[in-house]
Computed example of a mutant assay.
Amino acid sequence: MPSPLIRPDLVLSSGGPFVAAAALTQRDARETASHSHARGQLMGALSGLVSVGVNRQQWVVPAIHAIWIPPHYEHSVRSHGPFSGWSVFVTEARCVTLPREPRAIRTSPLLREAVKRAATWPGAELDTQQARIAEVILDEVAASTPESLGLPTPEDERLAKITNAMLTDLSDSRRLEEWAVWAGLSPRTMSRKFVAETGLSFAQWRQQARLLRALELVADGVGVTTIALELGYDNVSAFINMFKRATGITPGRYMAVKAGLDSEVHDS
């Protein structure tokens, strides 16, 4: 049972400050079973990587990103090895202007600095200066745009059999037609059901699965060549191009940004 990230009353109660925050750095992996609470939660990573299960999806939260979970959404949390991160809890009344659905976002330096300050507060009612900083956090969440860091899970048993096998070995490059035969489906049925149940085509789902695994491996410091081979890419350039299209930066630049955030953690 992991130790509480923040005082339980600041998560479960509608009273107290309308924004409460906490930061955590630990060497051991952290896992929290599925749960929900009345406050909305913004969960961010400074270093390492966290997976959040919510709404029949697995969301990956790599460094410089965060996930917004509205009030009362069931969710589970698992870190991949050592990590540093933070969470902000927002009273339900103040979530009215915030996104109604879970979303992953890329955090701005302004948001990270505001959260860092909020994490030092004692959990009492906010003074005027603190309230202004808390409003900045809410404004940043309200203005955020979604990032594609989720992986929807199909309900159909045959599709789930395929996705589970793919997640076990993402270097397996069998074509849709081959997977369909393996699972006892016609290619047309498999293609149609994939879109209907996940909102993604088969090719899009596999690329998303590879991207999320790549983010985990990059966060762990694994070399680009090793990652490309593990994910089934023909060459390193193809992997780098995919990563840049999806994230806007190369794996090397991503690691440089992450290293800068690591320095912030150690210096603070």
Rank of each mutant, 00 (worst) to 15 (best):
L212K: 06
Q207I: 12
P71R: 04
A180N: 00
I69D: 00
E74W: 10
W121H: 09
R174H: 03
F18C: 06
S84H: 00
A23C: 06
H266R: 08
S186P: 01
S268M: 05
R78C: 13
V90E: 13
L42A: 06
A165E: 07
L211T: 13
E230A: 15
L24V: 04
S108W: 05
E155M: 11
A259T: 12
L111V: 02
H80G: 03
V236T: 09
S148D: 12
T198M: 01
L215R: 07
A22M: 08
P109L: 02
E140F: 07
V115E: 14
V88A: 14
A180S: 05
G223L: 06
V236R: 11
K258N: 08
G221T: 12
A228N: 14
Q57Y: 03
S268Y: 08
T153Q: 15
G53H: 09
G40M: 07
S34G: 13
A246K: 13
S34F: 10
P71Y: 03
G44M: 06
A165G: 09
P99M: 10
S201D: 06
H72W: 11
T107S: 00
I137V: 05
S191Q: 10
Q26D: 12
E92G: 01
D234L: 10
V115D: 15
L151H: 07
G184R: 04
L46E: 15
L151A: 09
A228G: 14
L98V: 01
F89G: 01
P152V: 03
T189M: 03
V218N: 11
R103F: 13
D127I: 02
D28I: 04
C95F: 10
T198C: 00
Q204T: 08
A33R: 14
V19D: 03
D139E: 14
I105V: 15
A143W: 05
A33I: 11
V224G: 02
A38C: 08
A209V: 02
S148G: 08
L200D: 06
M255V: 10
Q41I: 07
G184C: 03
Q58F: 12
T198G: 00
